[in-house]
Design a protein around this nucleic acid. Structure first.
Lengths: 340, 340
DNA sequence: TTGTAAGCGTTATCAC
DNA sequence: GTGATAACGCTTACAA
């Protein structure tokens, strides 16, 4: 591990080991057609010299970088960060590095920008976060430029090698079941924004369960949000002005649910006595707000790790999993409705 | 912008322009010793061909990558993400990319790991987030391996080219002034963890202001936290058991302040009527919790942008700034104390 | 002011 | 199985 002066190159290894540099290269790249003897010898020289292949040179020769890109346009900071952590779990102690790249899905040049980015940086692979992960054109683009990709979503968007997903719909159904089990019948929903697959899955899970229970969902019980805190306030104001008032609200994410709690407080509606609320994401705010919020948690970090492994180490056991079950996290924002 | 088949290389540009590739290289690198004529001609050919220099080849020849690293071990997710956004503001539309790398400051191998990372990836520069930004050995290491660095901190840690800082101490002083102005005299503090410069600055700002006002701070009014939500709960429990009880708490960050609010609620202490709270960071939770929290906001994103510019474009005006003033953000968690 | 030749550290081709 | 030799696309001497 003598690292004095300059880092040793493949040439140094070749010279010391008395072989050609191509042979060393073969050892590095685990070529099968190499004699056991030679391999062992070279490996010992590599260890002795503390040689590490130069990623820049490899990138040039291979026309591909050892970088994993994270493309996102996700409104929820915590989701993005959790995802990053998961990716890093996967690439820790490898030669890979994580490059992050937020994009703007409303820009007409988004696809061109991404194409340039992928072509120039020659990423080894990219991870696509919702909602841009739902864009099939984008997936086709990755395919076209020869960049491996994995999409993350709320439902199966692609084949198992190109996707990790949670079972949002099912989970919302059981959240509704739980509310109904507590005695609620007037249940409203704050939906996520148009164009988000997750918003659609969650809405359909909600509607499906309500129908199954024979419960009606009047128009006024379906409010629209943007997945942001403030939109939760206005959506809840709308919902809470309905007559009769809903006794429970399912919100498509926690941030909006937190907004809904503010709106309720502003009207002196107490939670959970007068109004039950269930969110989605299990983000920190759900635990930190008062009262602590019952919500649906999904294993973002494990999903991210699996997604990254699908690219950097597809043979890994953990890379096989494609569907990750979410879970209802019970806290204190749900109670039985007050008797009328 | 005809990008059919292969991307054009410097050779294509040279051939079409009828010059040597070194001349093209000079244009790319803005060498001053080139005739205006030649430059313009080459630039037009570059535009016509849609040529973009290959970063991998540049990295190999220059022995330096066009990657900006973000090294962090920060307990606050939102801080990290805001910082990332700021860096991206700075490198948008450049050839640079952002590589993120969390580290473990408790690991004895941290410095070695970072050295390997910097040497192998040959980063163009790194951004250091608190608390590891406070580590002088780390700064020396960056210097040694020839990697530009900028540290972010709560006080001037280095010269202006290597640092962006906020004026935490001053701001905490004015937060205390504000509390005193509202009539509080029994003011407690939840401190940040040992070893954080920010924790120290904030504590000293607090103590300094209290002294200036001739107010005492009994031992029991100084609780210790870890910058995490749960530590805020236990710290506040300690504080709220004191006799007489403090009428106001300054918390070294918002997360702990949110924890303190939970602790107060659990004891039916109402905020702000019975207890005023001021946090620090202006993170989303401060705005989303109830009641909305008065806190000290610091411009993380602008600081991050300036930090990144110091590395990628030092001549930029925005790169010059080194001290970024924080500001008291007034919301609803502070009121005058109830008359005894 | 511009061009030539020699790298940078790796991998691919194709002989041996 | 292994090794010359030529890429990969750019930059840095050093000349001209």
């Amino acid at each position: 591990m003598a690292k004095q002066g300059k880092a040793p190159t493949i040439n140094d290894v070749a010279r010391v080991a008395g072989v050609s540099k191509k042979t060393v290269s073969r050892v590095i790249n685990r070529s099968p057609l190499i004699k056991q003897d030679t391999r062992e010898k070279i490996e010992s020289v590599i260890a002795e010299l503390g040689y590490v292949p130069n990623p820049q040179a490899r990138a040039l020769a291979l026309r591909r970088n050892f970088l994993i890109g994270l493309l996102h346009d996700n409104p929820n900071a915590q989701t993005v960060l959790n995802f990053q952590e998961g990716v890093l779990d996967a690439i820790r102690d490898t030669e890979f590095a994580l490059v992050v790249r937020p994009v703007d899905r409303h820009s007409p040049e988004m696809l061109d920008d991404i194409r340039n980015f992928l072509e120039q940086q020659r990423l080894y692979g990219v991870l696509l976060l919702p909602p841009i992960s739902e864009n099939d054109e984008l997936a086709a683009l990755c395919e076209e430029v020869g960049c491996a990709y994995v999409r993350m979503g709320s439902a199966a968007l692609d084949d198992d090698h190109h996707m990790v997903a949670s079972n949002d719909r099912e989970m919302v159904e059981s959240a509704v079941d739980y509310l109904v089990g507590q005695g609620h019948t007037r249940i409203a929903i704050i939906q996520g924004p148009e164009g988000f697959r997750s918003a659609k899955e969650r809405r359909e899970g909600f509607l499906g369960a309500m129908k199954r229970h024979g419960l009606e969902v009047p128009k006024g019980y379906m409010a629209q949000g943007t997945y942001r805190f403030n939109s939760g306030i206005s959506a809840a104001e709308e919902l809470l002005s309905q007559e009769p008032r809903p006794t429970a609200i399912f919100s498509s994410n926690d941030e909006m649910a937190a907004g809904a709690m503010h709106a309720a407080r502003a009207r002196a509606i107490s939670i959970p006595a007068d109004l039950s609320i269930i969110g989605f994401d299990d983000s920190p705010i759900a635990a930190h707000i008062w009262p602590p919020m019952t919500t649906v948690g999904w294993p973002i970090r494990q999903m991210a790790k699996a997604a990254a492994l699908k690219i950097v180490d597809p043979s890994n056991d953990e890379a096989e999993k494609a569907i990750f079950p979410a879970q209802l996290v019970h806290r204190s924002s749900v109670a039985s409705p007050a008797k009328d």
